[in-house]
Measured scan of single mutants.
Amino acid sequence: AITFRFEGQEKAKKFYEKLMRQNLEATIHIHGDEVHVTVH
């Protein structure tokens, strides 16, 4: 698994949606202002 870190939720959401379109499995974790997107 690879984890990407984002400042702010907007960028993270766009990235997450892009992964979903590519049929990749990903989970999102929100830590205050920092958002972690883990790709499995």
Rank of each mutant, 00 (worst) to 15 (best):
Q22P: 01
L19S: 02
N23T: 04
H29G: 05
Q22A: 12
H36V: 12
E34D: 05
V37Q: 00
K14A: 14
E10G: 05
D33C: 11
G8T: 15
H31K: 08
V35N: 01
E17H: 06
E7L: 13
T38L: 10
K18V: 09
H31Y: 12
V39S: 03
K11E: 15
K13L: 15
R21H: 08
L24P: 03
K11V: 12
K11T: 12
H36N: 04
H29A: 12
H31S: 10
D33Y: 08
E7Q: 13
Y16H: 04
E17W: 06
Y16D: 00
E10I: 07
D33W: 08
V37S: 00
V35E: 00
I28M: 10
Q9V: 15
F6K: 01
E17Q: 08
T27E: 09
H40A: 08
V37D: 00
G32S: 04
E17Y: 06
T38D: 03
Q9M: 15
H36G: 02
F4L: 06
Q22F: 12
E17A: 07
V39K: 03
K13Q: 14
Y16M: 08
N23S: 07
K18A: 13
Q9L: 15
R5K: 14
N23C: 02
Q9P: 14
V37N: 00
H31A: 09
D33G: 09
E10F: 05
K13E: 12
V37A: 00
I2N: 04
N23H: 11
E25N: 15
A12W: 05
K18Q: 13
R21K: 13
R5E: 04
I2G: 03
G32L: 06
I30G: 03
E10S: 06
T3M: 07
E25A: 14
R5Y: 13
F6N: 01
G32I: 05
K14P: 03
G8S: 15
I2Y: 08
F4E: 02
V39P: 07
D33I: 09
K13T: 10
H29M: 11
E7M: 11
E7N: 13
I30T: 08
E10H: 06
K11G: 10
F6R: 00
K18E: 14
E34L: 09
G32A: 07
D33K: 11
T38W: 09
A12K: 01
K11N: 11
E34M: 11
R5I: 15
L24G: 03
Q22W: 14
A26Y: 11
K14S: 09
G8V: 11
D33T: 12
E10D: 11
T27C: 08
D33E: 10
G8R: 08
E10N: 05
I28E: 00
H29F: 11
T38S: 05
V39Y: 11
A1P: 11
Y16V: 09
Y16T: 02
F4P: 01
G32Y: 05
G32T: 03
E7V: 12
N23K: 09
D33Q: 09
K14D: 10
I2F: 09
A12Q: 01
G32M: 05
Y16R: 02
I30N: 06
H36L: 14
K14R: 11
E25C: 13
A26L: 09
Y16N: 00
A26N: 01
L19F: 03
V35T: 05
M20D: 02
F15R: 00
H31L: 10
I30Y: 12
T27S: 10
Q22R: 07
I2D: 03
F15H: 01
E7H: 13
F4C: 12
I30C: 03
F6W: 02
A26D: 01
F15L: 03
A1K: 13
A1S: 14
G32F: 07
K18I: 11
G32R: 05
R5A: 07
I28F: 07
H36T: 12
I2T: 07
H36M: 09
Y16I: 11
F15A: 02
I30K: 06
A1Q: 12
F4H: 04
Q22K: 09
A26K: 01
M20Q: 09
L24W: 10
Q9A: 13
H36S: 09
R21N: 08
H40G: 07
E17T: 04
Y16E: 01
T3P: 02
L19N: 01
H40F: 14
K14M: 10
Q22V: 06
E34V: 12
F15G: 00
K14G: 05
K11P: 13
F4I: 08
M20V: 11
V39D: 01
A1N: 11
L24D: 02
K13V: 12
I2K: 07
E7S: 13
N23P: 03
T3G: 02
V37F: 03
E34W: 13
F15W: 04
V37R: 00
F15Q: 01
G8K: 11
T38E: 05
A12S: 02
Q9N: 10
M20I: 14
E17M: 09
A12D: 01
Q22C: 05
E17L: 08
E7G: 08
K11M: 14
V39E: 02
Q9W: 15
A26R: 01
E17S: 04
N23R: 06
F15K: 00
V35I: 11
H31D: 10
R21F: 08
F15V: 02
T38Y: 09
R5P: 03
E7K: 14
V37W: 01
A1H: 13
E25I: 15
R21S: 13
A26W: 09
K13S: 06
R5M: 10
E17N: 07
G8I: 10
L24R: 08
H36P: 00
K14W: 10
D33P: 06
L19M: 09
K13A: 09
I30D: 05
L24Q: 05
K11D: 15
A1M: 12
E7W: 12
A1I: 12
I2L: 08
A1R: 12
V35P: 01
E7C: 10
G8D: 15
V39N: 02
A26G: 03
N23D: 07
A1D: 12
Q22E: 10
H36D: 03
R21V: 08
E25L: 14
K18C: 13
H36A: 04
E25Y: 15
H29I: 11
T3R: 06
N23E: 06
T27W: 08
K13N: 10
H29K: 09
Q9T: 12
M20E: 04
F4K: 02
I2S: 04
T38Q: 06
V39I: 13
K13H: 10
H31W: 11
H36C: 07
L19R: 00
T27M: 05
E10V: 06
H29V: 13
G32K: 05
Y16Q: 03
K18T: 11
E10W: 06
F6T: 02
I30W: 12
K18F: 15
F4Q: 02
R21A: 14
L19K: 01
N23A: 07
F6H: 01
F15N: 00
V37T: 00
E34P: 01
E17D: 12
G8M: 10
Q22S: 08
H40K: 11
V39W: 13
T3H: 06
F4R: 02
E7F: 13
K18D: 12
V35G: 02
I2P: 03
I30M: 10
K18L: 14
K14L: 13
T3V: 15
F15Y: 04
Y16P: 00
F4A: 02
L24S: 03
L19I: 09
L24E: 02
V35Q: 01
N23Q: 09
F6D: 02
E10T: 05
G8P: 01
V35H: 03
R5W: 11
E34S: 09
R21G: 08
G32E: 06
V39H: 03
T27G: 03
F6Q: 01
V39M: 10
R21E: 12
A12H: 02
H36E: 05
L24Y: 12
V35Y: 14
H29Q: 11
Q9I: 15
I30Q: 08
E25W: 14
I28D: 00
M20K: 12
T3K: 06
G8H: 14
D33V: 09
H40E: 06
H36I: 14
V37K: 00
A12G: 04
K11Q: 15
R5T: 10
E25V: 15
F4T: 03
Q9E: 14
K13W: 15
K18S: 13
T3A: 04
F15M: 03
E7I: 12
I28V: 07
R21D: 08
E34I: 12
V35K: 01
G8A: 12
T38N: 04
